[in-house]
Amino acid sequence: MKSNTPMDNNAAEEKLVSAASSEVIINIEKVNKWYDDFHVLKDIDLVVKKGERIVVCGPSGSGKSTLIRCINNLEEHQEGSIVVDGITLNKNLKNIDHIRTEVGMVFQNFNLFPHLSILDNLMLGPIWVRKMPKAEARATALEYLERVKIPEQADKFPGQLSGGQQQRVAIARSLCMNPKIMLFDEPTSALDPEMIKEVLDVMVELAETGMTMIVVTHEMNFAKTIADRVIFMDEGDIVEENEPLQFFNNPQHDRTKLFLSQIL
């Protein structure tokens, strides 16, 4: 565990109040997925409420990234159903495009567009997908850059920014599309220890606004602070699922115990 994030000290006291409502926003039922012959997701069931914050953890190859990538169809599932915001994910390209505009995603490697300035990275989606007028898109972009605390970098290119700054830009880029759900795929795994905090801070602030979030991460203190639920996956199965305090202090499954003893 990287222990120099200041959150360690008093994370438990700062536990955010849950924003979960009773409205279901993601409903995953009996989802199976194979990469060729390899069974990556096995009968996954997961219901996410609006405003709920879920942290997914597990060893590498356990299918946690694949699971969240199925939610916006970056990966196709072969069996089962995924319903996002009332829309069923199927072969219909219109549905997929629509769901993608409602679901923001942040990657381990940022995936910013290196040929565009920071501002253009942020304005691209609103202008081309949302058909927003340029001036309005610009104002929105600047507002979100302000929120992730790097307004002064607006005219630079991604290659000129540090990893932490790039990841914050990536978060702002997703937020510019005004999504209902945010997916985070190991957002701090490619960052230097000193930069992890600045990204996690932005994510905590985002959680405070009541955004529905699914975060794949190994930052356990972060999980304790924001998660309503922690999901532990192994070999394509959801092995254990609990609220964070119970999950960390009183794990039930042997595999979970082993995993927690390895990383804590």
């Binding site: 916006n72 970056l74 390209l93 495009d97 993608r100 505009t101 679901v103 923001g104 995603m105 990657f107 490697n109 995936n111 910013l112 567009f113 040929h115 691209l124 989606g125 081309w128 997908v129 949302r130 880029r173 997703s174 599309m177």
Partner: peptide, 23 residues
């Protein structure tokens, strides 16, 4: 990752190709 980045902000095939990949 560039294709995925473009997809997640809702760009379709032509948008991804014309705005992100081709340039």
């Amino acid at each position: 990752g560039q294709y995925e980045g473009a997809h997640t902000i809702g760009l379709g095939y032509w948008g991804t190709m014309g705005l992100i990949v081709m340039p």
